[in-house]
Amino acid sequence: MSCGTGGSSCETPRRRGAFVVLAILALIFVVLSIFSFLKSRNQVTPDTVSFGPYQAADGKRVFQAYNCMGCHTMVGNGAYLGPDLTQEYKHAGPAWLAAFLPSAGGWPTTAAVRAQLLDPNQQADGGTDSIEAYLKKFPGAAERIERRGGGTTMMPNLPLTKDEIGQLIAYLKYTSAMNTEGWPPKVEVQGFDRRVQLAHGVIATAEAAPAPAAPTAAAPATVDPVAHGAQLVKDNGCVACHATDDKKLVGPGWGGLYNSTVKLSDGSTVIADDAYLRESIRQPNAKIVAGYPTGVMPAYETLLKDDEVNAIVAYLHSLEKQ
């Protein structure tokens, strides 16, 4: 008489009832889904976000082409090797990203980020061309430079082009602007030193970070120019893109470059003498080596003094082909 296991007359109506409930739930799901993507939700879309001439919509394709989600999370989904990237733009800003992405194997220094601020796109997007104002606006960049600047990262170098980097920045700008309902949760523990101490039991700042890129302009004149140059290329983030042997990274390798014959993109050749090297540092776009795009390297014209450029050139003399 009762509705026991199977066979009883109650089973069929019960099953019907279950299907009705299922249909109602499906309807609820569809309605909620429609409301999720209505205009009134005011969620940003990638077609409305750009960085300079670069579109966030293109950046999304670059992000997928390199399978960034295979190491990082984005809105919390993906892999857990690297940090979450949803708000990377918001924390570190476009200039830090532009300094980091061409050679992700190294952490940018202040000088490397300052070099990016020469780019008008950067000035327009970050709203400033002064490194101090930039670091104030994007404290995440200051923190990154202070703790790790000049060190090596765990991320492999990727063969990103200049355009792809601009597009990625636009995409990260888009994800930073998204309303993700409060995720990742805001950090409410106060005080950086205290947080590091809670994590490791000791204040680890000093030990974890190589000395921040202190301006070395005041270096005494007696210093060996080659050593001075070697320090400068580190501080200015040059070695993020250039190898000290003849390997090609983002830019050409330096080993054996001095006095060699260089083929340029317009088909002509030049000898890499002192004048050429100086020009290539100050105005890299004046002559582009064959096989490299224009506009990747920032112009160091206003960033380096004459004796600093000379010290770097002296250092380049010392590097041999390997």
Partner: peptide
């Protein structure tokens, strides 16, 4: 541990604090 160091303490990079903890 990752939740604590990364989300609660807000220490950011895997190469630094999170992986170490």
């Amino acid at each position: 541990v990752q939740i604590y160091v990364y989300r609660i303490l807000g220490l950011d990079w895997f190469g630094g604090d999170v992986a170490r903890a």
